[in-house]
Nucleic acid binder design. Structure first.
Lengths: 140, 140
DNA sequence: TTACCTGCAAATAGTTTGCAACCCT
DNA sequence: AGGGTTGCAAACTATTTGCAGGTAA
C-alpha cells in the first residue's frame, strides 16, 4: 500500500492526514494475522518512537468508526484489527492465536438463500458471520 | 432446575457441592439472556449477601472448565455465560444487548455437507459457529 | 484560524491472584 | 483429616479519558 493511497483513504473519510494515522494504517496493512494494538504499537515505534499508546487506540477507534479497518474480538482479552472491511468470515486455530480471513461467495449465497426461505421467527437478519474453528495444516 | 439436579451435575463433574456453586449454577439457569458475571452476582446476593466477587469468577471458570456452562464473548467488554453447552449458534441484536441461542439441525447438516464436499485448503474444521446479527421483532 | 489531533498521566473496569481461613467429602 | 474452596484485598491489564499543547486544512 502506497502512502498516497493511504492519504486518499483518510481524506475520503474526512479524517485529517497525520503521520500517526499514516503509520498506524500502514502497520495494519503490513502486519498479517490480525494484529493486536500491542503488535501495532511495537511495529510503529521502530520508526516512530514517540507515538503514544492512547493515540494508537484513539486512531484505531477512528479508523474503525469510519470503516477503514475492522475490530475483531477474540476469546482472549484483547481486540485485534483487520484491514479487510468487506464482510467475511474467520478461521480460528484452536491451538494457536492464528486467525485468517475466509471468503466464500458460494457459501454466502447458500446461507442467504437458506434463511430467505426459512427465516428466523421474530428476527430480521442483517448479517451472518461464521467462526470456523479448527487446525491449520502446514502443507508438506 | 431442582437443587438435587444441580448437586448431581456438580458431583458428576467431580466438583464439591458448595452453597456458592449451587447458587451460581441456579442463577445461570434462572437468568435468561446470557447473564454477565455482574448479573449473576446481583441475583445471588439477594439471598446470599456474603458471596465474594472473586468466588463467583472462580466458580464460573470451574463450571466452564467442566463444561457445565459456556462462556460467550461479546463485542462489549465482558463475558456472558450460557447454561446451554450443546453446540449452538447465537442471535445478536444489533441495537441492544440481547442475545439468544439459536439451534437449527437442518442448517448444521447443510453446512457439514457443504464443507465436507468443498473443504478449506490447509484447514481441518472442528467446529462452526454462526453469529447472526439483526433485530428482534416483537410480535403484535 | 480553528477545529481536530496528539501525548502524557491518571483513571477505568472487568477479571485474576495470593493467601489464610474454612468446610465438603 | 486434608485438599479443594472461599473471602478479602490488592494486583493486573487492555483500553479509555481529561486536558494542555500542537498541527493539518
Amino acid at each position: 500500500m502506497k502512502p498516497t493511497d493511504i492519504q486518499t483513504k483518510l481524506t475520503e473519510k474526512g479524517l485529517k492526514v497525520t503521520p500517526q494515522r499514516m503509520a498506524i494504517l500502514q502497520a495494519i496493512y503490513s502486519l498479517n494475522n490480525h494484529p493486536t494494538a500491542d503488535n501495532i504499537i511495537d511495529f510503529i515505534r521502530k520508526n516512530h518512537p514517540n507515538i503514544a499508546t492512547a493515540t494508537v487506540y484513539k486512531v484505531l477507534d477512528a479508523l474503525n468508526e469510519k470503516g477503514l479497518i475492522m475490530k475483531v474480538k477474540t476469546d482472549k482479552d484483547f481486540m485485534r484489527y483487520d484491514a479487510i472491511v468487506e464482510n467475511h468470515h474467520h478461521l480460528y486455530d484452536s491451538t494457536s492465536e492464528r486467525i485468517e480471513d475466509f471468503n466464500d461467495e458460494e457459501l454466502n449465497h447458500m446461507l442467504e438463500k437458506y434463511f430467505e426461505q426459512k427465516g428466523i421467527p421474530n428476527f430480521k437478519i442483517e448479517d451472518i458471520k461464521l467462526q470456523i474453528i479448527g487446525k491449520f495444516i502446514s502443507n508438506p
